[in-house]
């Protein structure tokens, strides 16, 4: 599992970018001592209900935009929402392309097409959307992550597809 030679060194650049702030503390899990939890995949993609979670800061035009930094709120976006009704607000990446085409970070259209082609079984429920770049790991751990977990579990999905920005 070798890191590609041209992968961008985001940790190093984040430290440089936020040098004047309190040091960003990366969450680090040692694969040997804190391996990821593991749930075996039991169904084929073609028979799977897939839930979508995105941290690209996408919201529907009639939903409140996200605010900058440590906004741990989320929006539910119905799976049939057309791209023309979606907006993007995010402080941490260049949103011009995503604003023009939210499919860059919230692939609802792609998932719908894959269901139509029977590559996937179904979209399990509304996409769960939030704005990443949250400075506080504590807020993610204690608030956002358990809230999204509970919401996605209610969708009776077979697989969750997580798309950061």
């Amino acid at each position: 599992m070798a890191r590609p030679a041209d992968a961008v060194p985001y940790i190093e650049r984040t430290r440089a970018l936020y040098a004047r702030q309190a040091p960003y503390r990366w969450v680090v899990h040692d694969l040997e001592h804190e391996p990821p939890p593991w749930t075996p995949i039991r169904s084929s993609l073609a028979s799977s209900r897939v839930a979508l979670i995105s941290s690209g800061g996408v919201h529907r035009e009639d939903q409140e935009p996200f605010h900058f930094r440590n906004d741990v709120s989320h929006r539910e976006i119905p799976a049939d929402t057309p791209a023309s009704r979606l907006r993007v607000s995010h402080f941490g990446y260049d949103i011009r392309d995503a604003a023009r085409d939210p499919g860059c970070v919230l692939p609802l259209r792609a998932l719908r097409e894959l269901v139509d082609r029977r590559v996937l079984g179904a979209i399990a429920g509304p996409a769960l959307s939030f704005m990443g770049g949250i400075y506080s790991a504590r807020l993610v751990r204690d608030d956002l992550a358990p809230r999204l977990r509970d919401l996605v579990l209610r969708q009776q999905a077979d697989l969750a597809y997580l798309v950061p920005a």
Partner: peptide, 29 residues
């Protein structure tokens, strides 16, 4: 996002995460 993936997987739902930031993903695992 890695923390959220771990939280969901621990609750019994398999996850697949996209990434374009190899070093961050490697750290959060």
């Amino acid at each position: 996002m890695g923390l959220i993936a771990r939280e969901i997987e621990a609750a019994g739902l398999p996850t697949v995460s996209m990434t374009s930031a190899w070093d961050i993903t490697e750290a959060v695992a």
